[in-house]
Design a protein around this nucleic acid. Sequence first.
DNA 1: ATGCATGAGAA
DNA 2: TCTCATGCATA
Length: 324
Amino acid sequence: MTMALNAKQPFTMPAALQEPKFSSLHASAEAMRRVCLPAPQLQGNIFGSFDESLLARAEALAAVDIAPHAKGHPHHHHHPPFKPDAAFSAMSGVPCAAAALPLPAALPHPLPHPALDGGDLLEHLSSPLAVGGLPEPLPPPLPPAAPLALPVGAPGGPPPPAAPEAGSDPRELEAFAERFKQRRVRLGVTQADVGAALAALQLPGVGALSQSTICRFESLTLSHNNMAALRPVLQAWLDGAEAAHRDRAAGPDLLPGAERKRKRTSIAAPEKRSLEAFFALQPRPSAEKIAAIAEKLDLKKNVVRVWFCNQRQKQKRMKYSAMH
DNA sequence: ATGCATGAGAA
DNA sequence: TCTCATGCATA
């Protein structure tokens, strides 16, 4: 039931050749960044020695850049031989003014996690609306700003859902992102605040977003589709925020204050280098290979799998595919 | 600002 | 199982 906002893929492509994601503009760019994949290795070697060569080659590659670190990179500290899981800590009092509560109706809630191994609980917090409060453009001691609400349905200007292909121009998206950030800062609102305020906007199927997402939007580190989908929403917020700025509505702020806990395994540098080498050879290793790699690097299989997924996702970010 | 992770939905 | 959109936890 959760359906995040998604301009979901109007076009679905076979997993094998799914690249022509966007218009056509990047078709070439996309193709460009996805270099290599030269060796036609492995065919039907299910016999013991299946990917020994792959592993060996990747390791060789991984080793190439390590030894003589004369002055090339700012590499510093290192790590223990290895360690599967690792660091975790708790965040304390994050003064984010955010929250939403089981509001009226329609709050697409992601839902609770099934208790997996790690055991992370209570993640979603929602809380009361945060209406009214508007942070004065006084940056320094910026008090936990209170997000702004916006009269939904009051189209201040551009009818968003007009052109299906509107706002899909990479150039324009980039320009918007930049303007957005500047004006946001001008309003003295943090990325986290924006994300929280979005919930108050109560747009169809649009809930709050995290600081991470807002940050990624501003830095274009999201997929093109994602950027395009978020643009209208952020535009709406910006309009409302600036309007509210003129007016004046002051409101106190709320402070949720919750505790979180969740582990984030940390992959050490050497292991990471190996993974990168593997990735260059095979961006999409089979489950068997992932298992082999995991064993070699002494990492959990799932960690390796997720790493590859994230790596693939990285390739698709605007920054790289639309680089000009 | 980013790394590792979850989960819904499509193959 | 992968992709995609997102997020917590971190550096």
